[in-house]
Amino acid sequence: MALKVLTPAPKNMLQSIAELTVEKSLATHRMLSPERRFARMDRQHPTALWRNPMSHFALTIIGRDRAGIVSEVTSILYQLGCNIADSSCSILGGQFSMILIISHPELHDQQSLGEAFAPLEQSGLSVFLRTLKPGGEVHPDLQGEICMISVYGADKPGIVYRVARELGEREINITDLNTKLIGGKDAPVYVMMIEAILNPGVEIEDVESWMAGLKEELKVDISVRSITPLEL
């Protein structure tokens, strides 16, 4: 999904966002004030930007899936002048779920952004915003073989937990996890896909041996394979 919004927003972006929301929320104007204060500060103190490196926020939006959600969300981000640094959006159940790491060069506190998303709440989406601690936006440099673990079988409690425990106890980092309940009502099948990074010295065969016991215990099928990208 090409969501990157790197083009600087027009100078009147805050004006635009105000026009967008003014009828719905007078609180929008509170949002404008801190930004203006920052802008003035920057003029008075050239080092102000240096003192205030780009703030990053985690933005989570979820709501009943329909066409137009991404457009509504990114329109607001664009007009605010936010960058989308990293994002993942998908349908879970009937819900469209968006998780984004966003940044803004001037707005540093949650309050200054929060009200801008009010229109989304009004259209039935739930919006959560959290300020990241400095450095929280940097992807960890994970080294090691990437393995995919497929787990599937008749649905029963504890499939996710038992597999995750085997990995967690050995400090194996799960980097991606998907689960889905498939099949009919009479024979529900649980499917789980895990991507994990193996610590140095850990081989695919080791993971297979950890999973061997679980196959018996949970009566599920489990396969493990390397999906380390081919560097070409």
Binding site: S88, N178, L232
Partner: peptide, 28 residues
């Protein structure tokens, strides 16, 4: 075979980005 296909793609101006067939999370 994969490496050869990847390199020959470069000769036609294709990057693997032009060939991505699934997002890693689209298993389902």
């Amino acid at each position: 075979a994969i490496a050869i296909q990847h390199e020959i793609d470069h000769l036609d101006g294709y990057l693997f980005l032009d060939r991505v067939s699934s997002l890693k999370t689209d298993l389902f």
